[in-house]
Computed example of a mutant assay.
Amino acid sequence: MTTATGQPALFWCKTCLNMSTRPRIEFNDQGRCNACQWSEEKKTFDWSSRMNELKALLEKHRSKTGEFDVVIPVSGGKDGSYVSHMLKHEFGMHPLAVTITPPLSFSIGDQNLQNYIASGYDTIQINPNQKVMQELNRRGFLEQGRPLYGWVIAILAGVIRTAANFGVNLVMYGEDGEIEYGGSTESKNRPVFTAEFMKRVYLEGQYEKTLRYLSSQQTYFWRFDADDQKLGNIECAHFSYFESWDPYRNYMIAKEHCGLQEKEESNTGTYTNFAQNDTCLYDLHTYLMYLKFGFGRATQDAGIDIRRGAMSRDQGVMLAQMYDNCYPEPFIEKYLDYYQISREIFDETIDKFANKDLFYKDGDRWMPKFEIV
């Protein structure tokens, strides 16, 4: 399959497994994706200037009265734990950790959050109206094929709103996934980002539509209020901008210092067991990602391992073929109950978002028309 210009309509990065179908991704003339290009650039990058930027940003927001200096979104997972450890113990900041409780949480995710709290961090756990959360996630699933859309909004807007309520004007997220894993490069050389960027890129321009018909009172923890001066003063940053980001290193540090535990078995749809252990809805998210774009959870994990030199591309291809097309069978009844829909509506929604150019239906399962090359 080729385009009118003779270029392949479907292709993979020559170094990792990123596909041409990935939203906002870019490739160079050698067929390498921007995530791989950045991975190589990081090895020769002069991080000292960005470290100076970080120090200046932290000093700008360091409290003179002993109050909180920075808000960190956390779940008890590897990345928020790592950022917390670094800001508190390496830079002497006084962080306030904020957790937006996930729907349909795993017990290991709940335990990891408790372990994180016990390791010595002031933590607020926010439970936004669960009926509203349920409705927003339902809309995200039925209208966009994004089963966790409401939770993702709250991790952005709700955390910023909480920072404003505490008078903290710096929110530090973990990695910029667009830069690290392949996507938009517009924030590559920009230390802070805005609510407009979140809505346009992370929420893919569907924010206002998804919140339609809900009152401002109902959506307090989901709103980016442009006319709210307190919110307008807040700067948001990714810690990955300031250093060479390494998810596996984060995992090891979180395990040592914050009590992070991994599952005994691998996660659904991949060969790893230590990341994204918050909610079973993430398993549905990655399955739909696979059906929409042709790459799943194992492809993403393999790409990270290939770029850090822990795996060959051939090994990654084998693992993606083994794990990517993994239907989240164990949780179907939970999904139906949570979204308050029938199995028929659930199956129709899955079918609606399956990319017919990439997949064909064999019985009641979608199968790939392609092979990774």
Score class of each variant (00 low, 15 high):
349 T>S: 03
44 T>G: 12
340 Q>H: 08
216 S>H: 12
12 W>H: 06
115 N>S: 10
369 K>C: 05
224 F>V: 04
248 Y>H: 13
57 L>A: 04
292 K>V: 13
58 L>R: 03
270 T>G: 06
111 Q>W: 10
363 G>L: 05
358 L>V: 14
360 Y>I: 14
212 R>H: 12
296 G>I: 02
246 D>V: 05
311 M>E: 00
182 G>D: 01
33 C>A: 14
141 F>M: 08
184 S>L: 14
296 G>R: 06
151 W>R: 05
366 W>M: 09
357 D>S: 11
261 Q>K: 15
84 S>H: 05
290 Y>F: 15
210 T>S: 14
256 E>G: 02
5 T>G: 04
52 N>H: 10
167 G>E: 13
143 E>T: 11
153 I>P: 08
354 A>P: 13
168 V>E: 07
316 G>A: 04
330 P>T: 07
25 I>R: 01
323 Y>P: 08
86 M>N: 05
160 I>E: 12
95 P>M: 06
276 Q>K: 14
195 A>I: 07
203 L>H: 06
150 G>F: 05
371 E>N: 11
13 C>W: 03
204 E>D: 15
323 Y>I: 10
285 H>M: 08
303 G>M: 02
213 Y>C: 03
70 V>P: 01
258 C>V: 09
56 A>R: 15
14 K>A: 11
281 L>T: 08
274 F>Q: 12
359 F>D: 00
96 L>F: 07
65 T>N: 09
173 Y>F: 15
258 C>R: 14
358 L>R: 12
319 L>Y: 06
232 G>Q: 15
301 D>V: 14
76 G>C: 07
207 Y>T: 08
63 S>E: 00
80 G>T: 01
75 S>I: 08
170 L>S: 09
275 A>D: 14
283 D>V: 06
130 Q>T: 14
298 A>Y: 04
88 K>S: 10
213 Y>T: 15
333 E>V: 13
276 Q>V: 15
232 G>H: 11
21 T>H: 10
33 C>G: 08
248 Y>K: 13
47 W>D: 00
299 T>E: 00
48 S>K: 10
322 M>E: 15
85 H>T: 09
321 Q>S: 11
153 I>R: 03
362 D>V: 07
368 P>M: 07
261 Q>F: 07
114 Q>E: 14
365 R>G: 00
98 V>F: 06
63 S>A: 15
195 A>P: 12
356 K>N: 04
296 G>Y: 00
249 R>P: 05
119 S>H: 12
328 P>F: 03
305 D>P: 06
197 F>K: 13
75 S>E: 04
58 L>W: 07
110 D>M: 03
76 G>R: 11
334 K>M: 09
54 L>E: 02
15 T>H: 09
167 G>K: 10
108 I>D: 02
9 A>N: 11
240 S>R: 09
165 N>Y: 07
69 D>G: 03
143 E>A: 07
7 Q>W: 10
283 D>W: 00
361 K>L: 09
4 A>D: 04
308 R>Y: 01
200 R>M: 12
367 M>C: 06
297 R>L: 10
149 Y>N: 02
333 E>T: 13
